[in-house]
Amino acid sequence: MIVGADAILRVQSILFRTDVESLRLSYLALAHAARVLKIHGLVGDVHLAYGDCSPSPILSAATIEAWQREVGTDNSLLAEYHFFGANLGSARGHNTLMSKAQGPLARDGAGGFLAIMNPDVKLAGDTLLQLLKTLLRPGVGLVEARQLPIEHPKHYDEQTGETSWASTATAITTSKIYWEVDGFDADTFFLYCDDVDFSWRVRELGYKVVFQPGAVIFHDKRLTLEGGWAASEAEVYYSAEAALLLTHKWSRSDLTNKYLMYFKSGLNPVLAKAAAEFEKRRASNTLPIPRNNAQEFAQFVGLEYAKHRF
C-alpha cells in the first residue's frame, strides 16, 4: 500500500440521533489525530464521510463548516455529509457511504486507507498513526484500536496483536481489502456482528486481523449500579438476532439451534422476538448461505466470538 503525500485516508461514521455536541468533540479529536498522521507523512489527506440514518438531518453544511473553522483552515478535516432518510443500520450505512467514494478509494480506484469508527468515539492524538503503522506490517488486513474505559476482553497475541476479529468502534483497513470482501454483509446484519463477519472474511483472504493496544479511543460505555452492562432493549434484540445469523452463516448450526431453543423458551420476550425474526428469514429463504471452511476462521467460544482474556 502506498503511503506519503498522495495517500488518502477515508474515515466513515454512521449517525443515528447522535448528540451533536459529542459529535463536534469527536470531529475535533479526529481532526487532531489526522493532523498528527499528516505530520508523520503517512498520508496527504484525510477525508471524513458521515452517513446519517436519523429520522431528520442532525447536521448541516453550516455546522460542519463551523467545526472546520474551529480546527483551522491549515488543518481542516475534509468532511462530507449524506443524509440517508432511512435507518440503514451500520453495515448498509458504511456500504452506502463507500459507494459514494470517489478517487483512489472508489471500487475501481488506485486504493487508499479506510477507517471505520463510531461517530461519538474520541480518538487520542496518535491513534490513527498507531493504527496505520500497524496496518502497514506485511500481511495485516485490519487493525483495531483499544477502547476506554471498558476494553474488549478478546484474547490477542502478545507480540503480533493477532486476534479473532476487530471491533469497528474504530478500526482501519484498506479500500482494496474492503472491495475484495465486497464490504459489509448488509443483507444479513443490521447493527451488530457485521464487524465480526467482516473480520472473518478478511482472514479468509489470508490477512491478519490485529489488535493494537497502543492505539487508544474513548468509547462512552457506562455500567449499571451493580457494575454490569446497561444494555437497552434494542441492543439485546439486535445482539440476539446477530448471534443467530452469525452462527448460521459461519456453519455452526449446532449453536444456532441451541440459541433458538433458549430464545424460544419465552423467558425473555425480546429474545423470543429475535428467534421469530430468524425463523421468518429462514421461511423466506433470505438467510445467508453457510460458508465452507468456516471453522478455520470463525471462533465461537461460549457465547463469544473469540477466546477472552477474562
Partner: peptide, 19 residues
Amino acid sequence: KSHVSDGRLAAISTGPVEP
C-alpha cells in the same frame, strides 16, 4: 503492560471491572 509490535507501550486490562 502490553506492547504489540508497531505500536507504543500500553496498558491492558486483565480482569473484569469489579465494583
